[in-house]
């Protein structure tokens, strides 16, 4: 993209379509929301109710499986993690706690909820996006980013 050398809009849109079709299969096929945080919690035995545990576990198992298949076909898939251990651990704790408290993440509220025009999901998505923008802005201001 002009002026935005790292952006890959066509690949992003194509991958997005795949994610959306997968979520549509969950909705129309199984009658459930493809919300990854909820399915992970359910698969790990950290949530009551929701999808049957085997079903949640198989969906969650599919995520690395799908990524591995693409890596196999493409040769490689970039996955550049932060080097900082405290950043990974703090980020993980907040993501786990926050997605349970807020009943959803980027997939459940972002993809499934926004497409349903759910007021809950519109509010949640605006808030987690806003908090994400602000967090990265502050990290940059404090010299934590290159």
């Amino acid at each position: 993209m002009p002026g935005l050398p790292d952006a890959v809009p066509p690949a992003g849109f194509a991958g997005g379509l795949m994610i959306g079709v997968a979520a549509a299969v969950m909705l129309l096929g199984l009658g459930r929301i493809a919300g990854v945080s909820g399915l992970v919690a359910r698969a790990a035995g950290l949530a009551e109710g929701g999808a049957p545990r085997a079903l949640a576990g198989l969906f969650v198992l599919g995520l690395p499986l799908g990524a591995a298949l693409v890596a196999l076909l493409q040769g490689q898939v970039a996955s550049r993690f932060p080097d900082s251990l405290p950043l990974l651990v703090t980020g993980g704790l907040l993501v786990g706690f926050g997605t349970r408290l807020g009943s959803g993440c980027t997939s459940g509220h972002g993809v499934c909820g926004l497409s349903r025009l759910s007021p809950r999901s519109l509010v949640a998505t605006a808030l987690f996006m806003g908090a994400g923008f602000l967090t990265v802005f502050l990290m940059r201001a404090m010299g934590m980013l290159p």
Binding site: G16, I19, A22, L61, L63, L65, A67
Partner: peptide, 12 residues
């Protein structure tokens, strides 16, 4: 569905 979802995340 999970596999397609994960593949989509990688492609995107």
């Amino acid at each position: 569905a999970g596999t397609l979802f994960g593949a989509g995340l990688a492609v995107s």
